[in-house]
């Protein structure tokens, strides 16, 4: 019987992100959120995961040249990995401070780049990790546990 076969218990979604693509900005995290709701994750967890994903997605769109966003949805934990090619972050500790931003005035006028992205992600995530090489790019990993 096919029922005996162990079904794959992880769902992987992948999206490519483009610099300053405001028309499609937020689509990846929106899709991620829809999937989580459909799967039956608790609203509070969906909200946290969706906000973290949105901030991470916007970071790539605002700051990087391009990037890939991967979601690994498992029943017990959600993993978001964002890898971009961009300027990188020279001082991660400074970037984690509320209000610190390197976004241009034009971007800020659009209502983005207020320096709340990374702190917001930290608030929503159970764990986060940033690896960055200035001038090359950044790899951000976010974990949200479903207890």
């Amino acid at each position: 019987m096919s029922e005996q076969a162990k079904p794959e218990q992880i769902l992987i979604l992948e999206f490519t992100l483009k610099s300053l693509d405001f028309m499609r900005a937020g689509e990846a995290s929106s899709e991620f959120k829809q999937r989580l709701k459909k799967l039956g994750f608790k609203p509070e967890l969906v909200r946290r995961a969706a906000i973290a994903a949105y901030e991470a997605e916007m970071n790539v769109i605002i700051h990087a040249r391009k990037g890939v966003m991967r979601f690994e949805i498992a029943p017990a934990r959600l993993l978001i990995v964002v890898e971009d090619e961009g300027p990188g972050i020279s001082d991660i500790e400074q970037a984690m401070q509320e209000g610190f931003t390197t976004a241009s005035a034009a971007i800020r006028e659009l209502g983005f780049g207020a320096g709340m992205g990374l702190p917001n992600i930290k608030r929503c995530a159970d764990a986060m990790d940033i690896q960055s090489i200035p001038g090359q790019g950044t790899r951000l990993q976010i974990i949200i546990n479903n207890e």
Binding site: P7, I10, L11, I12, R35, L39, G40, F41, I73
Partner: peptide, 19 residues
Amino acid sequence: IIHLDSDIKQAVAKMAEAE
């Protein structure tokens, strides 16, 4: 509303399969 399965493990498995 239960979309795929009331058990989240099954739901994830089913969505991966649907993918």
